[in-house]
């Protein structure tokens, strides 16, 4: 029993990181009906930016904030230059552009920073595990950070005029323009936000898995599974689904399939959700966009 509890608690810790990426994916999906296959690589690249800043002597939280600003701007620029022009192109074109981005980020990172694993610092100290040895300080700290971020994002969308406008632009661009919302700018803003949320996830996961250009492949897969499990049209679902995926990963790893089939577990969940409940736990079914 103790063991299960341990698995669940540490699952929630990693799950909250998946939840951030799931949320970023769902935000982009709601606004553009596109799936950002490069979301993971963007987060990875942001994490390298943070590492570079830290190695240059910037204190951790300074580097953290600068990285968020960088990611936010980079996300906006990418949306403006690449994705906006392809907004009305067939699925293949936008998928192609995202895969192109994925390749570019992954390989440029490999080129600049090499493919060797690098340790990434945690701001929460090494110290002994807490909660009766169930959670490392970093796990607790990163969970807290992610929860704060997710709450802030929720509050932004729920209580601010800009957040409401972003939601309006995502759900109904035509009516949004008619009430004077600059929809294109809202989409860029959404992309910037998604990129910044991804960057936080990258910086929180890097101390656990070490930093390398392929660091986010597995995280992205779990985030996909989380987003689908929660319902790709539901931001709340994305968060719940992401956290659930962390728990499922741990339980399955410890008691069912072992850690060697982690990715396959995510694949199976993706397929099962899509076949049996494509709308996920919280979402609504969407018509196919062929």
């Amino acid at each position: 029993m103790e063991g299960v509890l341990h698995q669940i608690i540490s699952g929630i810790a990693t799950g909250s990181i998946y939840a951030s990426i799931s949320l970023a994916l769902v935000m982009i999906f709601l606004a553009t009906h596109q799936i950002n296959f490069a979301q993971g690589e963007m987060a990875m690249f942001s994490t390298y930016v943070a590492l570079t800043l830290i190695q240059a002597g910037v204190p951790y939280w300074g580097a953290f904030v600068l990285t968020l600003v960088f990611s936010f701007i980079a996300g906006m620029v990418l949306q403006r230059t690449l994705l906006e022009p392809l907004a009305r192109a067939p699925v293949l074109a936008s998928v192609g552009a995202f895969l192109g981005l994925l390749l570019i980020f992954n390989n440029i990172a490999g080129w600049i920073f090499t493919y060797t694993l690098q340790p990434f610092p945690t701001p929460f100290g090494a110290g002994a595990p807490i909660l009766g040895g169930m959670l490392s300080r970093h796990e607790l700290g990163s969970t807290a950070v992610t929860l704060v971020v997710l709450t802030a994002v929720w509050a932004f969308f729920r209580f601010t005029k800009l957040g409401l406008a972003l939601r309006g632009a995502a759900y109904n661009p035509v009516s949004s323009r008619l009430v004077g919302i600059p929809v294109a700018r809202m989409l860029s803003l959404g992309w910037g936000l998604a990129a910044a949320i991804g960057a936080i996830a990258g910086m929180m996961v890097a101390p656990i898995v070490f930093l390398d250009p392929n660091m986010m492949a597995g995280v992205l897969l779990y985030a996909f599974a989380g987003a689908l499990l929660g319902g790709i049209t539901s931001p709340l679902g994305a968060v719940v689904g992401g956290v659930l995926m962390g728990v499922i990963e741990n339980i399955a790893g410890a008691y069912i399939v072992g850690t060697e089939l982690k990715l396959t577990t995510a694949l199976v969940i993706i397929v099962v959700v899509l076949v049996f409940k494509p709308s996920g736990l919280f979402g609504k079914t969407l018509a196919n966009r062929v």
Partner: peptide, 14 residues
């Protein structure tokens, strides 16, 4: 042109 997913209040605020 209703914002179907949003509340009446949010429609008006938009």
């Amino acid at each position: 042109g209703t914002f179907m997913e949003l509340s009446v209040e949010e429609n008006l605020r938009l």
